[in-house]
Simulated assay, not measured.
Amino acid sequence: MTYEIQKTDDEWRAQLSPAEYQVLRRGGTEPAFRGEYTDTKTVGVYACRACGAELFSSETKFESHCGWPSFFDPRSSDAVELLEDRSHGMVRVEVRCARCGSHLGHVFEGEGYPTPTDQRYCINSISLTLKPAQ
């Protein structure tokens, strides 16, 4: 896929910290229960840390107790890209920023959370920047 924001690997490495680069550009995962937004209740919008695209609203964030921030829906249907992920011996759905292609996390369905969509967008804190409401 061609993304609106395109940079070379060297440009991404210069912009992002090593930990951010590992998650956003290499598809890594931050350790559970250590991310800065796991338990945040601040009202605002969560944007892609790599490109600033607005991805999720605090209004759709919920407590899943899984160790990473969870949302039941993206801010808009075209904010994220969903891709089949067959890594680690399982089939999952990867969530990427639709603007720059950065890895955000995964989305799961049918887990029984009391949310309107029955989905859990399990997103790495390090892939997000919270913009508090004014």
Score class of each variant (00 low, 15 high):
Y3S: 02
K7Y: 09
D9S: 05
D10F: 06
D10V: 10
E11L: 06
W12A: 01
E20V: 02
Q22A: 15
Q22G: 04
G27C: 08
G27R: 10
G28L: 03
F33V: 13
F33N: 04
R34W: 01
K41M: 08
K41Q: 15
K41A: 07
T42K: 11
G44L: 08
V45K: 05
Y46T: 07
C48S: 10
A50S: 08
A53Y: 06
E54C: 07
E54N: 01
L55I: 00
S57A: 10
T60Q: 04
K61A: 11
F62C: 13
E63I: 15
S64H: 03
P69K: 00
R75C: 10
S76F: 07
R86D: 15
H88F: 13
M90W: 13
M90Y: 09
V91E: 05
V91G: 11
V93I: 15
E94M: 05
E94V: 12
R99F: 11
G101K: 00
H103G: 13
H106G: 13
E109R: 15
E111W: 11
E111C: 09
Y113I: 05
D118T: 09
Q119T: 09
R120N: 14
Y121E: 03
I123W: 04
I123R: 12
N124C: 08
I126A: 02
L128G: 01
K131C: 05
